[in-house]
Structure formats: structure tokens, C-alpha cells
């Protein structure tokens, strides 16, 4: 039997904790901050119309990926999945029939993000979908959100190397890192986490990095290009 009110009330409690947790300050040296690397699989890229169907989060503490802290989950969409999205991630509408709906399913993700700086690859996608999901629970997505794609562009500029690919797998390969199961939220989250460690470590060759300076990767890239 469904109890929407109870669910909503529990959701608010987790969301409230998320909203009030202390997150590493912007000036924290990057290795001392706590991160949550997030990857979402979606039914499409339009956050007004499309839905989160699967998510994964991997924590980073003290500059190391904590594998045991990984979370992964599926969300039941409200509408059948468009065929083109099935082709990307291989998840079909019927695979999600028994999954909880978004508001309930996403609770472990909100808990995983609590007190942590969110990291994602091509982060505007995660930013807009997570923002919407959190608003439904009466919370806001807390900034900054770090973007490994922007960090990769910045590193390439610093090294006077050609701009990197937008594709996570290609970026990981160019850094001599493994590519985990692509288009599977858990695989992509792990790949992104490892890419983040490598990029932040390499960027330190050019000066110390803080949460804030990494968050400004895109702005720094633009300043470079002048």
C-alpha cells in the first residue's frame, strides 16, 4: 500500500539534513574536501520533460575513491522510455517496473551527497536534473558542482595540448585510466571519479588547487582564451 505522505515526510527529513550539512568551504585545498561523484542515466537530456532512470554516486575522501561508499539505484519513470534512450543505456521500461518512483528512489543519492561537493562529467546535465529532483523535496542543489569536462579543458590549455574529447571514455583513455562499463551509472561514476583524481593531481603541477579554483575551471579556461 502506498503512503505518499509518509514517503514525502521522510524525504524532507533527508533533504533537510542535506540542506543544512556543512560542506567543505571554497578555500579548502582539494585533497582535504569531501566529494560525491554523481552519474545519472536519463530518458533524455531535457530536464523539463525527461526523467532520471538510474543513478550512481561514489564518494572521494582525502583524495581517494572510497569504493565501499558507492550507491546505485533505479527509478521508475512516469512515461515509457523513448527508444533512443534505451539504445544508449540498455535499460528498458519493463526493467524499471519494480523500481521505486523518483522521490523515494533518490533518497540514498541525497544522503550520499549530504556534506559533499558534487562532481560530474559535463555537469550541466546532472545540475539541472538533480536541481529539479531536489526542488520536489523542498531543497536546493548546493553549489559548487565541479565538472571534470571543464577541468580536462583547463588542463589541456595549461599543457598546451589539444582540447580533450567531450566523451568521458576518451578523456579517461587519454589520461591512461581505465574506462568502466560505459552508460552504466555505476561504471561512469567510477570512471569520472578516477578522472577527477587524475585531473586535480595534474592541475596541481601549475599551482595549488582548492575546491573553489576547481569549480572555476570553466571561467579560467575562458580567461585563458581571452
Amino acid at each position: 500500500m502506498r503512503r505518499p505522505f509518509a514517503t514525502r515526510a521522510r524525504a524532507s527529513a533527508i533533504a533537510k539534513r542535506y540542506a543544512h550539512a556543512t560542506v567543505s568551504a571554497g578555500r579548502t585545498p582539494w585533497r582535504l574536501a569531501h566529494y560525491c561523484v554523481v552519474d545519472l542515466e536519463l530518458s533524455g537530456l531535457d530536464s523539463r520533460r525527461d526523467e532520471i532512470i538510474s543513478f550512481a554516486a561514489v564518494p572521494i575522501d582525502a583524495g581517494r575513491v572510497v569504493v565501499g561508499g558507492a550507491v546505485y539505484g533505479l527509478c521508475r519513470p512516469t512515461r515509457p522510455l523513448p527508444e533512443r534512450s534505451v539504445l544508449v543505456h540498455g535499460i528498458r521500461t519493463l526493467d524499471l517496473a519494480d523500481a521505486p518512483a523518483l522521490d523515494e528512489a533518490i533518497q540514498p543519492l541525497i544522503e550520499a551527497m549530504t556534506g559533499r561537493v558534487v562532481v560530474a562529467h559535463v555537469a550541466w546535465v546532472e545540475r539541472s536534473f538533480l536541481g529539479r529532483a531536489l526542488r520536489r523535496q523542498g531543497a536546493r542543489l548546493r553549489g559548487p558542482v565541479l565538472d571534470t569536462f571543464e577541468m580536462g579543458r583547463l588542463l589541456a590549455l595549461e599543457r598546451k595540448a589539444p582540447a580533450p574529447s567531450r566523451l568521458l571514455g576518451e578523456l579517461a583513455t587519454s589520461l591512461n585510466l581505465p574506462v568502466h562499463r560505459p552508460h552504466h551509472a555505476l561504471g561512469d561514476a567510477l570512471t569520472t571519479a578516477q578522472v577527477f583524481l587524475a585531473l586535480a593531481t595534474h592541475l596541481e603541477e601549475f599551482g595549488s588547487e582548492t575546491v573553489e579554483s576547481l569549480a572555476r575551471a570553466s571561467e579560467r579556461t575562458r580567461m585563458y582564451l581571452g
Partner: peptide, 11 residues
């Protein structure tokens, strides 16, 4: 064992 793993990057 793998649940206790941490991933490190060394330059």
C-alpha cells in the same frame, strides 16, 4: 575485499 578498496592516483 573490493568493498574495502580505495582508489588512488599517483603521478
Amino acid at each position: 575485499l573490493s568493498a574495502a578498496a580505495e582508489v588512488e592516483f599517483h603521478r
